[in-house]
Computed example of a mutant assay.
Amino acid sequence: MTKLSGKIAVITGGNSGMGLATAQLFAREGAKVIITGRRQKELDEAVESIGADAEGVLGDVSRLSDLDKLHDHVKAKYGRVDVIFANAGLGSLAPIDQVTEAQFDETFNVNVKGTYFTVQKLLPLVPDGGSIILNASIASSKGMEAFSVYSATKAAVRSLARTLTTDLKARKIRVNAISPGPIDTPIFGKTGLTEQEIEGFKSGITSQVPLGRIGLPEEIAKPALFLASDDSSYISGIELTVDGGMAQV
């Protein structure tokens, strides 16, 4: 018996990185997986890599109309969602005196608004006892240079895991946050840094990790599986930090 046999799982931002690795693992563990992404080509390639138990729904989590379409599609085809992994997110490095209003709005719209309304829109489809996982970050508790906006959004996500736990306690829906440390995903290429700057950033981060390396997307997928499955049946409201020890020592 696989850990998610017969389950329906929705993973936002499932077309790359941590979301894709989690979708692949969930499918291997028996789930039907619906992923979202903003680019059709990448979404199609991701679905193909996951296998027959996956499908993609094009959409941007910061647009409520796209989330309505996601809800309607899942309701019509499956009737329920057992697991939500609100994973979609983005961020860029910039000191406070260089942050633009557009950067601020985009980051909050995807990371906070997108996470919040992904849960709200899909919630009517979640049966009592379901699992909701929010992708936060150790940036929410670390004072990382030039990362103020991203860090603030992830602190909000961590807070949501607590408040939604109490909001949904009558339905026994478990809400938990995963807080990754540095993970080798395509997000590094979206920070606005050059290749050389990215390598320098990775090197500097690695020196702060007790385990001495950057994590892999698969190392987020496995904790996500734990939180999605009955293995974590008595766990709710937590922040599960997966960071090689970076924020712990």
Rank of each mutant, 00 (worst) to 15 (best):
G30F: 03
D66A: 10
Q120W: 11
E218H: 06
Q103H: 10
T36E: 06
A156I: 07
A221G: 13
F104A: 08
T107Y: 11
M1V: 00
I214Y: 11
T22S: 14
G13H: 09
M18C: 13
R162D: 01
S5T: 13
T118C: 12
G129M: 06
T241S: 15
N15F: 00
I96L: 10
S140G: 13
S236P: 09
T166W: 06
S49C: 02
G181R: 00
S232E: 09
Y234A: 07
A76R: 04
I132C: 07
K154G: 15
K7V: 12
L25M: 13
K190T: 06
L67F: 03
P180S: 15
Y150P: 02
P182T: 04
R171L: 15
I11C: 01
V110H: 06
K7P: 09
Q120H: 14
N87Q: 05
K142M: 15
L211M: 14
A86K: 04
K154E: 11
E42F: 03
L134K: 08
A170R: 01
M144T: 05
T165P: 07
D231E: 15
I220T: 08
T2Y: 04
L67C: 04
F26W: 11
M246V: 14
E197W: 12
S233Y: 00
D243Y: 12
G37I: 03
L20R: 01
L90C: 09
D44K: 00
S151I: 10
V57K: 05
L43Y: 01
L160R: 02
M144H: 01
A224D: 04
A224P: 00
Y234V: 10
E42M: 08
E106Q: 10
I173M: 06
A139F: 00
D53L: 14
I133A: 03
P182E: 11
E45M: 14
I205R: 09
V74W: 03
V57T: 05
S141I: 02
S232F: 07
G91P: 04
K202D: 10
K190F: 02
L123Q: 07
P127G: 07
I235A: 04
D128H: 13
D72H: 02
F104C: 13
L20D: 02
A88P: 04
G37Y: 00
S65R: 10
K172I: 05
G6T: 14
I178V: 15
K121Q: 08
H71R: 10
G91T: 06
G79T: 12
K7S: 12
V126G: 04
I133G: 00
S16F: 03
S49G: 03
P95Q: 07
V61S: 11
L225A: 07
I96M: 02
P210K: 06
S148E: 09
T100Q: 12
D66W: 00
F26P: 14
E106H: 03
I214V: 15
Q24P: 08
P217K: 09
K3C: 00
E197F: 13
K121N: 06
R80E: 13
A9N: 11
A155G: 15
L43C: 10
K69F: 09
G14M: 12
V57N: 11
Q103N: 08
A52S: 12
G91N: 05
P217C: 14
L122P: 03
S236Q: 11
S137C: 09
G79M: 09
F226A: 10
A88F: 07
I214W: 14
F85D: 03
V81W: 11
V249H: 00
A139C: 12
E195T: 05
I138W: 02
A86T: 02
